[in-house]
Amino acid sequence: MKLHYEVAGDDFTRAGEASGAVKATLKRLGFPADVIRRVAIAMYEGEINMVIHADGGVADVEIEPDRILVTLTDRGPGIPDVEKAMQEGFSTAPENVRNLGFGAGMGLPNIKRYTDDLKIDTEIGKGTCIRMTINVPS
């Protein structure tokens, strides 16, 4: 099954709708609770990142019996130093984002923690593509 979502960059209150919809779908399909939660949290962090750092983007989700693949693509500013961005506590989020409860610099490390594979392709001024895979234990 393939799902596609547009993630609006100008509506913070709706950020997370795509992740929520994927979570509901996985639940309906009967995936294990632990797998669903890992997909939901990792995708939610990525979706929030697209909204607060990249003015939105698109989410593509492939659901297979043995793995779930989430691809988040944006045309934002790109990430200058991915290694640094992966460190816990590193954030370039401005004060107004912190006041919204984000900008702890925990999102990317969380994504890494909850996924089995994570690939980040990014180019300054062009955008970022994040591919995450969660395996379903048999």
Binding site: A15, G16, R37, Y44, L100, G101
Partner: peptide
């Protein structure tokens, strides 16, 4: 914190 993401975060965590 008061915004919709608090509720979404709780939902993601079950």
């Amino acid at each position: 914190l008061v915004n919709t993401q608090v509720i979404r975060t709780a939902e993601m965590m079950d």
